[in-house]
Design a protein around this nucleic acid. Structure first.
Length: 120
DNA sequence: ATGCTGACTATGT
DNA sequence: TACATAGCCAGCA
């Protein structure tokens, strides 16, 4: 390689598209945690980025962002109060996901069990 | 290129 | 159970 081959300062690992691809595979009536999505996107430990990726989604996106919840089975709202949490809950309810008295989803029951053989 | 921001999670006190 | 801390990384100004 020539001394001047260009290489962006930091290797662009991927993009939000990688996370969207994983989220898009969550079946109806199932949910996944942020950490789970990160791991499936081949970026274990990057749970935060998953949340940011979803926050950056344009309205009307095909990505089922509402099927992603935090590690406690709760809905994580964006900074500040937003109507998104309620929308997310309604969407999940319409898919048959049940919330307990604590407003949490039983991950043991609804967590999506991905087969690592997805896509690719 | 640099610095700041932000839907998280795991661990320790 | 609650709070603090560290690690994580793509956008955007």
């Amino acid at each position: 390689m020539t001394p001047r081959d260009r290489q962006p300062a930091a290797r662009p690992r991927g993009s939000y598209a990688d996370f969207y691809r994983v989220v898009a595979q969550i079946p109806v009536g199932r949910v996944a945690t942020y950490g789970q999505v990160a791991t499936l996107a081949d970026r274990p430990g990057a749970a935060r980025q998953v949340g940011y990726a979803l926050a950056a989604l344009p309205a009307g996106s095909d990505v089922p962002w509402h099927r992603v919840v935090n590690a406690r089975g709760e809905i994580s709202a964006r900074a500040g109060t937003t109507p998104f949490a309620r929308i997310q809950r309604d969407l999940l309810l319409s898919e048959g996901v049940v919330f307990d008295a604590n407003h949490r989803i039983d991950l043991e029951t609804y967590r999506w069990e991905s087969s690592v053989e997805n896509s690719k």
